[in-house]
């Protein structure tokens, strides 16, 4: 009996102690207490977008002045071209146009990806506004690339409402270009049809 009372007292003491030593917060509001803001790729890319677009436009060179074999992981480019074909795949989630740049006579095939899902990390890789070191880890770095691609769609591609009617039109393009074999893939940051 005595032992039971002591046991209960100890239990009460533990519960009292622990409940005195606990911080209860709303779920997901840790940041307010730790000062560490959880990384949000979309917010981050949104505020960076204007700078990045400007930077790419500023750095862009005419595609005819480049050795396309050295395009590799990405360069900023600008040129005028004629739309050869509009392609829509995956229920309109992977649209693209193939184009022929003005004054170009080589064997490379040029494609501009028009989303809404974008491949690659070309925008992130050509910009210098944010570096890998600014992020905590690899995961955040890749989330940032995806967020930038979303910015492309939101700010550049979607407003133009591109469809198969663009075939044969002339287009002015600024963007990040990468090459795989003899295919050049362009992710646009500025685009206008004539």
């Amino acid at each position: 009996m005595k032992a039971k009372i002591i046991g209960v007292l100890i239990l009460v003491a533990i519960v009292a102690f622990v409940s005195n030593q606990v911080l209860v917060i709303e779920k997901g509001t840790e940041g307010q207490y730790t000062g560490v803001v959880a990384f949000d790729a979309n917010a981050s890319s949104g505020s960076d977008w204007q700078h990045i677009a400007a930077e790419i436009s500023g750095n862009a060179v005419d595609i005819n002045t480049l050795d396309l074999a050295e395009l590799g992981a990405g360069k900023s480019v600008k040129f005028k071209a004629t739309v050869e074909e509009f392609t829509s795949k995956a229920n309109g989630k992977r649209n693209s146009i193939t184009i022929k740049p003005e004054n170009y006579s080589g064997n490379y095939k040029f494609t501009v990806q028009l989303g809404s899902i974008y491949s690659g990390t070309a925008i992130r890789d050509v910009q210098t506004v944010k570096k890998f070191g600014d992020f905590t880890n690899q995961t955040e770095w890749s989330q940032y690339a995806k967020a930038l691609n979303n910015q492309v769609h939101e700010n550049v591609v979607a407003p133009l409402g591109i469809n198969s009617e663009v075939k044969g039109k002339n287009v002015n393009i600024t963007g990040a270009a990468t090459a795989t074999g003899s295919e050049v893939l362009i992710t646009p940051v500025e685009m206008s049809f004539e």
């Binding site: 622990v18 030593q21 911080l23 209860v24 709303e26 779920k27 840790e30």
Partner: peptide, 23 residues
């Protein structure tokens, strides 16, 4: 991660964690 219960998250102090773990 704390201890999430419903929409609240509980963060214990280290002494409390020690006591709980011994329990």
């Amino acid at each position: 991660e704390g201890f999430t219960f419903g929409d609240k998250t509980l963060y214990f102090t280290v002494p409390a964690i020690i006591v709980l773990m011994l329990c």
